[in-house]
Amino acid sequence: MSNIPTPGDVARRVVVEPGPAEIGPVTEGHADGLRAFAFFSYKGPRLDPGSADFGRLAWEGALTSLAELAEPEEWSGYNPDGRPLPILDSFLRYTHRRLVMEDKIAVSEDGMYAATNTGLLTSHAEEIFGLFERNNHEGQRWFFLNWVTESHRDILRHFGEPPHMAEYVTSASELVYDWRRELKLAYDHILGDNLDRFPAEMVQQPLRARQALDASINSTLRRVRRNHKLVIPQWYPKLGEAGAQFLMPLDLTGNGTADLALVVSAVGDRAYRGHTVLTLDMAYTNARLVARPDSDWLAPSAAPLPSTDQAPAGFEAAPADS
């Protein structure tokens, strides 16, 4: 019998204890920040020790090597600050956070190796794992070795079963928007706090912005009844198991393309609440945590990610009364 917590176990806060012969996945506390969890060493050409930022270069190297191993995907998107592969950066950090929440960090029986499932595949559909070795120096508990495939000898040698993927929903209803539910908008937050995200011609005209918002919602809901894929799931880390949300396209200018994404959360069993809007670059970064968006309106883009492994720009919780 597997001791891996299922999504239902996690949702019910059921604690699944490891078996007597097992060490991993472990219940001891792992750092939920990936770069606090493991030390990433610089593996590039020799540089001047006094001038190089080896931590940054090591992380850039890790991102690049993973992108090269995985099946082709656009990981750069909108990137005004020049960060390398910002969508992949966000994806890795928050996938790791989710794996820690679900207790899916696999550890070898001798406690010397750890592995995580990146959720990505190679071009030949092999799963890709992060492989780590116990770090004997002060600081992070683990030392990053490499990104490896499921057929790699060290995965087969050290782990009885491969690490499990992160899961973000506990039922199919969290993946498909139910157009039969009533949708209520938090106008004060959308128009009062986030009006600067609206098209430039509406920023100084709140009434026009509200009219455009209402018209766009009505139009989108008609389309959603005919194509549920228009509304895309996302996950907000700080809300834990309540973090499953939806992103709905908003065509505010009437030109046939999305200008913003409305964040929608379920309230009970009968209603949804639209509580904030995101720019499209924010929305794609958030949605990519759950799955690669399969929709024409949301193309690969990326919002700046703080360097502290906290929620990325654009992640917003529903207000306390939601």
Rank of each mutant, 00 (worst) to 15 (best):
A209Y: 00
A67C: 08
E174A: 15
T149R: 12
E73N: 14
R222G: 00
P304M: 12
I87G: 02
R180I: 10
V169M: 05
A320K: 08
S65G: 04
Q310Y: 02
A271G: 07
A299S: 14
D103W: 10
F91M: 06
G50W: 03
R270I: 08
A261R: 00
H124S: 11
D309A: 14
N135K: 11
I87S: 09
V26Q: 07
H158S: 11
E60H: 11
R83I: 06
I87W: 02
A244G: 07
R180M: 08
R288Q: 10
L195W: 01
E60Q: 15
R208Q: 12
L230M: 10
W142Y: 07
P86W: 06
L221H: 05
H158D: 15
F39K: 12
E182Y: 11
F129S: 00
Y187V: 03
H164I: 13
I23N: 06
G50F: 05
M112H: 14
P306I: 05
P293M: 07
L145W: 13
H137M: 15
S219P: 02
F144W: 15
L175R: 10
I4D: 10
R153I: 12
H30S: 00
V290T: 03
R153A: 15
G55I: 10
T27R: 15
G268I: 01
I232K: 04
T64E: 11
R141Y: 08
L88D: 04
T122S: 05
F143D: 08
G24C: 12
L221M: 15
A287K: 01
F91P: 01
L239H: 06
G314Y: 01
H228W: 03
G256Q: 11
F144A: 01
V267I: 09
S301H: 10
F159G: 04
Y42T: 04
L221N: 07
H189P: 02
S151G: 08
L213W: 02
D193M: 04
P80Q: 14
F39E: 14
Y187R: 05
V267N: 12
S301A: 13
D103C: 11
A58R: 12
R288N: 09
A287P: 05
L260T: 03
R181V: 08
R197V: 01
Y284R: 05
R35D: 03
V26Y: 10
R197T: 07
I128E: 00
D214F: 06
G61C: 15
A291G: 10
R35Q: 09
T257L: 05
Q205K: 02
S76N: 14
K238T: 11
D188Q: 13
T149H: 09
S108I: 05
R141T: 14
S307P: 15
L298A: 03
G119M: 14
T276E: 03
S41F: 14
A317W: 08
S173M: 02
E316K: 07
T118P: 08
A209K: 00
N79S: 11
W75K: 04
S216Y: 02
Q204E: 11
R12N: 10
A271V: 03
A38E: 02
Q245F: 00
A266N: 05
Y94P: 00
R56D: 12
A271Q: 06
R46F: 05
A303W: 10
